[in-house]
Amino acid sequence: MASVNSRKRKHLAKTIIIVFLLIVAVLVVFPYTLMLLTSFRSTTEILRHSERIWPINWTVAGYIKVFTRAPFFKWFRNSVIITGSVTLAVLFTSTITGFIFAKYQFKYKNTLFFIILASMMVPSQVTMVPSFLIVNWLGLYNKLTALIIPALVSSFGIFLCKQFIEDIPDSLCESAKIDGAADFTIYFRIILPQIRPAIGALAVFTFLGTWNDYLGPLIMLSEVERMTLPLALSFFNSQHSTDINATMSAATLVMLPVTIVFIAFQNQFIKGVSLTGIK
């Protein structure tokens, strides 16, 4: 009798938990659904019938406006170029530097690694002013490279890779060396395949951080054609008002690529994030 009761209670608790989790999931998706629906309503309809959520007259005018009034494809291209180059570069620089700090003995190793660690603690928001001045001084202002070159090295990435590479037994590298493998070959053939999970995690973080960066492009780029996608949303704000329909269409379009990438690689994303928490 008691066991039946407790089984019932357990069942009830499970149902409550599932319902709760579902409600949270709905709350997460809801604003994006609103965005999508609003992007198909004209601005006048939004203002006149604010009580409605579902469009009365479906319109793609907002999307047409985004594509015709704004260089949307150029922004997309800029975002891809910046994010792609930064992600690839960071993967390379982090793994190879992590490899060196994990497996090599050399002078000043500890001092150099301390510099990496210390620079990890300096967030870019703190150094936005001097970073801007340095980029400007180097003549990179208003060039896509202004967002690429300073981001080629990530101290977090180096730190993460070093942690993982340290776990690889030294004997693996040593024996390859005895077999006459060059250092770069060891890195490429032995180290990289072993730390695939770390590479995945780092790729996820770098991709998200760069693709979604708002402050960097806001400060470093000036011309409209050089802008990246996150800046696109303020494009339809005039001095005194906002074109809500065009803004929501732009928001949907900005959201689209990253959502597709996320859904395609959702497991890698979740695994990558979990990994950094454990390490």
Binding site: F132, N136, G139, Y141, N142, K143, S222, E223
Partner: peptide
């Protein structure tokens, strides 16, 4: 910022 840059403006 673009006036500062002397070239990007």
């Amino acid at each position: 910022t673009s006036l500062m840059s002397k070239t990007g403006g």
